[in-house]
Structure formats: structure tokens, C-alpha cells
Amino acid sequence: MHGMTKAEVDAIERNELRPQGGPKRPRDAATLILLDRTANDFRVLMGRRHARHAFMPGKFVFPGGRTDPGDSRVEVAAPLPTAVEEKLIAGPGRASAARARAIALSAIRETYEEAGLLIGQKGEFRTSKPEWQGFAEHGVQPSLEAVRFVARAITPPGRVRRYDTRFLVAWRSDVAVELADGGPTNELEDLVWLPLAEARNGDIPGITKTILEELELRLEQDPLLQPGGPVPFYRMIGNRFIREVL
């Protein structure tokens, strides 16, 4: 999608366009790409969004949602690696360590709420935040140690929703508890683990396909996803959808 015009992007994602009353400011969002290494291949967790959703109905996506600034105050067993935090702070927009922490923890919380997967370490965890009570009930301390930042994209103007999304990665081995009945919100249907190549060819948003392609390239060069690797950043500048690197 490097260097595409707005009209070309609109043609790819025509179903996401809606009449709007004026420009919408992108909201911070966080998405978690959960990977499972199988022999020489990687599988990724994806789920189908309910048809009733206004944003990307029926599409296969990664767990994620809007960032809650309050998540930055949740206690963790281990913090973000410094190199990952620095990349999350880089680029346009408000930048702070607290914001980077909120983005990463929001991705972990959304993965629990939508997929029933609690990422962290077994141990006592207490919190007054209702949305984090599942971690306390199942004895899981959230951990950011294994989180990696692999891509960022800002939804082009004209969509029914606009987000400044950070795509993060963690490993299935970092899941401390996997709930058999899924998460409390059940926002995602048909949760499946798919090989990366199969996931790319599924019913997914255009930007999701692009991010999966980027992730495949990075895994070829860095299968362990070391902290601080290059982060592609997609956004509209003028009338072109541009790829930069953070």
C-alpha cells in the first residue's frame, strides 16, 4: 500500500466507507497478534467480528480495541522492554511512557475480553478495576515482557470509525490461562489459529493483510522478534497513503 492514493485505498476498502458529518479524529487503539510457532511455520489467532458491528462487520481480525488511558496504572509482573517502549513513543502524536504502557496493556486486556486468553504469569493479582477482575479471579499477573511492537496504522479519512492502531505481538506460550468459553464480551466469533499464509488470504481488512505481509517479512529476518526492530507506519499524508518506518 506504499504510495497509494486515497481513491485507491477507498476502492480496496469500499465497504468501510460511510457518510460522515465531518472529519473524525483518530482514536488510540491497540491490537494483539498472538503467534504460535509450529515446527517451521507460524500460526496466528484471528476471530470474526459480529455482523452487528458498525466497524468491519463480519471481517476476521486480531483481538483489540480502543486504548484506555487508565490501563497504564495496572500493576504488571514485568514491564515493557525499553526498546519496545521507545518505539511506541516514537512518531507523531502525544508521547509518554505512560501512554506506551496503556497501549500495551489495553491490547492484553482486549485479548482477554474478546478471546478469553490471559497473558502474563501465574500469581496473586489485585485490582479495583472491574475490567481486570478476570486476571485476579484466575490468579494471573499481567506481563509486558514478551510484547513486541510490529506495526502502526492510522485509518484514512472517510471511514465510519478512525483509529491510530498499534499492532503488537505476543506468543501463545505467554498465555497463562486459556478460558474454554472465551472472553466475557464474546465480541469475536469463530476464533481460529491459522497459518500466516492462510490468514492473509482470508476475509480480512486490507490493512490487516498488509500487516500480516509485513510480519512475515520480519519473522523471516528475525524469528524471535527481538525488541526494537523496525516498525512500518501507514498513514495518509495529503492524498497519498504512505509507508514510513519508525
Rank of each mutant, 00 (worst) to 15 (best):
residue 169 V to R: 03
residue 115 A to R: 01
residue 224 L to D: 14
residue 191 L to T: 00
residue 107 A to N: 12
residue 241 F to D: 01
residue 53 H to G: 03
residue 94 R to E: 13
residue 111 T to K: 03
residue 168 L to M: 10
residue 122 K to T: 06
residue 142 P to A: 08
residue 63 P to R: 11
residue 117 L to G: 01
residue 201 N to D: 13
residue 97 A to L: 13
residue 188 L to Y: 05
residue 233 F to S: 07
residue 176 A to M: 05
residue 27 R to V: 15
residue 192 V to Y: 04
residue 175 V to R: 00
residue 184 P to Q: 08
residue 218 R to F: 02
residue 40 N to F: 06
residue 54 A to G: 13
residue 2 H to V: 11
residue 65 G to K: 06
residue 187 E to P: 05
residue 218 R to M: 13
residue 50 H to Q: 13
residue 228 G to C: 13
residue 16 E to G: 09
residue 213 E to T: 08
residue 228 G to A: 14
residue 43 R to T: 03
residue 226 Q to W: 09
residue 94 R to P: 02
residue 232 P to F: 04
residue 15 N to D: 14
residue 210 T to R: 02
residue 100 A to S: 15
residue 86 E to K: 14
residue 52 R to T: 14
residue 19 P to D: 09
residue 42 F to P: 02
residue 74 V to E: 08
residue 96 S to W: 04
residue 203 D to W: 10
residue 227 P to H: 09
residue 192 V to N: 05
residue 122 K to H: 15
residue 161 R to D: 12
residue 90 A to K: 13
residue 48 R to P: 02
residue 140 V to F: 02
residue 204 I to Q: 04
residue 78 A to K: 11
residue 61 V to A: 03
residue 98 A to D: 15
residue 226 Q to R: 15
residue 167 F to V: 12
residue 222 D to Q: 09
residue 154 I to N: 04
residue 39 A to M: 09
residue 125 F to A: 06
residue 122 K to E: 08
residue 6 K to T: 08
residue 14 R to Y: 10
residue 41 D to K: 03
residue 189 E to F: 03
residue 215 L to T: 03
